[in-house]
């Protein structure tokens, strides 16, 4: 493949022997390469990803790391762990923040995120609610906040969420100086069917030693 030397900035008319549906055929090589690379990353690789099933399922006894400060949660058994570390995992890059936890099963997704938080649990839930509504383009309706207490005695707040396509919940717990946000969403029937394991997971949030 050689460099195209067609100067279309200077010459507007394509020589007849190179014309193909109004396009200069000599400009096709780079255009085809560019389109092929785009197709590789945006069509082919996602298709390969979709074809590979999640084999990493949560097992009895698993404990997931919510924050490096020792905040953990016990996931429901049998869910696909798409992101997140078990407390038994030992990545080389031990510093930094813990990756968010993403669990999935039959269309229901549980996302657990953490960050330093100096405000109250109610402030955290308000802030998380505002972001969720913003991200949903205003189509998300929220239920009233309800109190709950984890098995470790930590106070938390939870509210239901509802959008035209999914139901779910939004929960917040503040553990020391760490805020934990849990988002659950999925088809309404599936969310209802998984309500009990999700409740157990919420109440399992704790900090090492507590």
């Amino acid at each position: 493949m050689s460099t195209p030397t067609v100067d279309h900035a200077r010459h507007r008319r394509v020589p007849v022997e190179h014309r193909w549906f109004g396009i200069d055929r000599r400009t096709l090589p780079w255009a085809v390469v560019a389109a092929a690379v785009w197709a590789l990353w945006v069509l082919l690789v996602p298709a390969v990803n979709d074809a590979i099933a999640w084999s990493d399922q949560t097992r009895p006894g698993d404990v997931l790391l919510v924050a490096r400060e020792g905040v953990t949660v016990v996931p429901p058994v049998g869910w696909g762990l798409q992101s997140g570390l078990r407390t038994t995992d030992r990545p080389r890059a031990a510093g930094g923040t813990a990756p968010p936890i993403l669990l999935g099963q039959e269309g229901v997704q549980i996302l657990v995120r953490s960050a330093a938080w100096s405000g109250s649990t109610a402030d955290l839930l308000d802030s998380a609610s505002g972001i969720s509504v913003g991200q949903a383009g205003g189509s998300l309706s929220l239920g009233d906040p309800q109190n709950f207490t984890t098995l470790a005695g930590l106070p938390g707040l939870v509210r239901s969420t509802s959008s035209p396509r999914a139901d779910g919940l939004l929960a917040a717990v503040v553990v020391g100086g760490t805020g934990v946000e849990v988002t659950v969403k999925g088809p309404p029937d599936q969310v209802r069917a998984t309500a009990e394991p999700v409740r157990r997971m919420l109440t399992s949030i704790s900090r090492s030693g507590s």
Partner: peptide
Amino acid sequence: VALPGNAPLMSIYTKLFGQAWAVD
């Protein structure tokens, strides 16, 4: 390209090599 392309490849790594490897 990059925004829609990065996530699936990262997901493949996670599926094939596990969470801890993928984090690194």
